[in-house]
Design a binder for these strands. Sequence first.
DNA 1: ACCGCATTTCAACAAGCGTTGAAAAATATT
DNA 2: AATATTTTTCAACGCTTGTTGAAATGCGGT
Lengths: 218, 218
Amino acid sequence: MTKSRQAPKRERILDVAEELFALRGYDGVTLRQIAKDAGVDVALASYHFGKKLDLFNAVFERRAAHLNSARLDALKACQASAGAAGPSVEQIIEAFLRPLELAQETGDPGWQNYLALIAYINNSPYWGPRMMSKLFDSLVSAFISALRDALPGARDEDIYWCYHNLSGALTLTLAQTGRIDKLSGGKCRSADFQAAYDHMIPFVAAGFREVCGRANGR
Amino acid sequence: MTKSRQAPKRERILDVAEELFALRGYDGVTLRQIAKDAGVDVALASYHFGKKLDLFNAVFERRAAHLNSARLDALKACQASAGAAGPSVEQIIEAFLRPLELAQETGDPGWQNYLALIAYINNSPYWGPRMMSKLFDSLVSAFISALRDALPGARDEDIYWCYHNLSGALTLTLAQTGRIDKLSGGKCRSADFQAAYDHMIPFVAAGFREVCGRANGR
DNA sequence: ACCGCATTTCAACAAGCGTTGAAAAATATT
DNA sequence: AATATTTTTCAACGCTTGTTGAAATGCGGT
């Protein structure tokens, strides 16, 4: 069995597919476009990945495990560094979000495209339920469980709705639509990840505390 | 020039296109699918709307003016009812969001589909910058301006980033992906609009106040 | 130098796409 | 009742799509 050194064309197909799928969605991209941008024959995508949907899944899964474990590690680390009282809401949210910022800040456009693709999938009524669950549910559950401990007395329902709001704010940030750039007249730039997360974290933490505050009166 | 009574088939095409575009996106839907679901010949869509892209725009614009003025009216009403000090952050956000809840609660699935389509467009790096600006920018500016008054001393940059988070949370809610349903084990339902907005409003208001708080120290 | 296997290209397919011009049907005008 | 206009269908076009089988190329083992 030959070790078959990593053929660069295979990766190039994944890279281009990642970029185009993130920009135009699954149906907005043709295999021929991908092949052309990758400098490769059309049939090569089918040879390596099978059907178009399989290529889509391959793109989705290529970085999923790495991203998942990075976020889970961050959560564990913040739990370990916190005392017996456990980490604060800010610390948990920070652990949930910062690995994404770091990925975007590597300068590797692949990660930015990948996260924009995740945003596309997560916001889609069709793809979201079909693809997000299997890979991200356990991570989200761990995160929610940590939040439950940090918010004693909070109702589960409230925590889930707050998470929903967090997920939405994050998703739009990942999508990198550039809308905020125009709206703010250049004062905010979607590509300024640090500013985005620096504002998102206290925003979300305050929301959690307001809605899930101790005396859970409504 | 005949008055040409409203042909019902034209509206049926719009309704079906609205529903399918919201679910699968622009490229995920064919004119033949739309025509079939509407019980109509393929050519009829071209006759009424021209190219496929024109139909997409027609769907987008059909309800845009109505929605925009409803939200603007709500903003004016809350400004009028408030004293000289102007409305609070909660009141402004409420005015921004409640008309959407009301539209979703009419029971007319058309409005739900339409708002899911808006979510699709707003979250798309391709369609967002292309379609959202022309129709929604003035509304958002009015809303931001009101927030500026309600948050004296806040930096514009902070306000815009907070609006970005609000927009994200709202977008995911409009998309109705149903992810929260599964995650929460049924405790939260995406179709329970009242619960969604009841949680979103205090969440967002608290975020604004935290990030744009009076002593704008960071 | 030859062989076996993985990789890549070539060529072509059947199906479905958006679009269009002309015919048919329905509706309005006179 | 006859005519003009709008609405709808029919039939077809040129093109692109995803996919496939066979041929060509590259490459490590012997």
